[in-house]
Design a protein around this nucleic acid. Structure first.
Lengths: 201, 201
DNA sequence: TCCTTTGAGTACAGGGCTGTATCTAATTCC
DNA sequence: GGAATTAGATACAGCCCTGTACTCAAAGGA
């Protein structure tokens, strides 16, 4: 009665890397829809249209599958270059809060159980998945503004420089929603720019 | 072989409110130690030294038990009154990050699954458990500073006023750890006081 | 003291997930 | 075309949790 040995679309049987891709796509969907708790071999296999043994062969433990999934979907967020400090900041926060990137942040909350079990945290995961040490988005944005002469070339604490993303992330974590445009403007205009000593927008 | 019909300590059989207290204490411990995922009737009953039917009689569903547990342990955080804006702020953040209060914040992450299932969020939960509308800690702190003449009496956005707690919470959520004293000082001295236009500490 | 309430123990069917094993047949490699 | 892989289906025992039902006995009230 079921289409045996056929991928959902009726295509030929998948193998190797193609199958792996499909499984990780399915895993990501499951993770987004049902959180870490619903992220089971059972659910992922069903969603991928394959069977659990196929998953176990590649990722013996749930964490292995999780990490592989996150690694595939975790991407750097685009940093716009508009020629304006304020617009760069607002644009970046918009990107950070959009569907794709925002989902990653909200996802991180769903991973609380994983963090607890693995004894790790969001920052540690981030350092694992993204090469640490490179300039943060706001370091880039401030650097450009300094080059343009929009900001004085004085030392700034990393706390202040990176403040906007922290606040955006906080809002997302606390409301579990996309952050509205007004909050982004608030963060930039009422908090960040004044702190940097920039002229009010 | 087991001590039948006896509380763990060998005391008489517990009843009514006393039993209820003991159960909620146990529930809190389970929640702290095993997160929402491990927060099962089974585990709570075992920890409380009673049986599941006793729990089901009082809280038919898991959420009922969860809410009752949170309501019992969710408390307002003490706001110190030292006569100094900076010391009030630092002191409050210290309290907010201490074992008891900090645990509540970290707990909130563990509740991600609950939020997802119930379609709610940390802020909504907070409003449910604490009467909304009252002044926030930092509104109180700023208000006092204005009365003392330490700050000018100008309108301030609630975003700026409440910034320190947001940043503290962000740090906790992201590191899953207690926030070190230096971070508290950073938040107050490098971000908040400058924004309020207060003289540097 | 008797009676009512209710805590504590136990049992049950049911559901979901885990790992592993086994079989088959599709695909690829040579 | 034949052989080696390996996807996909299925089955299994096991574990944990859920609700509910049915006892029995302890505590408290009259």
């Amino acid at each position: 009665m079921t289409l045996k040995h056929r991928a959902p679309g009726g295509a030929s049987r998948r193998r190797g890397p193609a199958l792996e891709e499909a499984i990780l796509d399915a895993a990501w969907q499951v993770l987004v829809e049902h959180g870490y708790h619903g992220f089971t071999f059972e659910a992922v296999a069903a969603r991928a249209g394959t069977s659990r043994p196929v998953l176990y062969r590649r990722w013996p433990r749930r964490d292995d599958l999780l990490l592989a999934t996150l690694a595939k979907f975790w991407r750097l967020i685009d940093v716009p270059d508009t020629g304006s400090l304020r617009e760069d900041a607002v644009g970046f926060l918009r990107n950070a809060g959009d569907d794709r990137a925002g989902m990653l942040t909200l996802m991180s909350v769903q991973l609380a159980d994983y963090f607890r079990e693995a004894g790790t945290s969001l920052t540690e995961l981030r350092d694992t998945l993204l090469p640490p040490g490179r300039a943060t988005a706001f370091e880039t944005i401030v650097g450009r503004a300094v080059e343009r002469g929009e900001l004085p070339d004085v030392p700034r604490s990393s706390r202040v420089v990176n403040l906007p993303l922290d606040l955006l992330r906080h809002d997302m974590l606390v409301t579990m929603r996309r952050v509205p445009e007004e909050s982004i403007a608030e963060i930039v205009d009422e908090v960040w720019l004044p702190l940097l000593g920039a002229p009010p927008g």
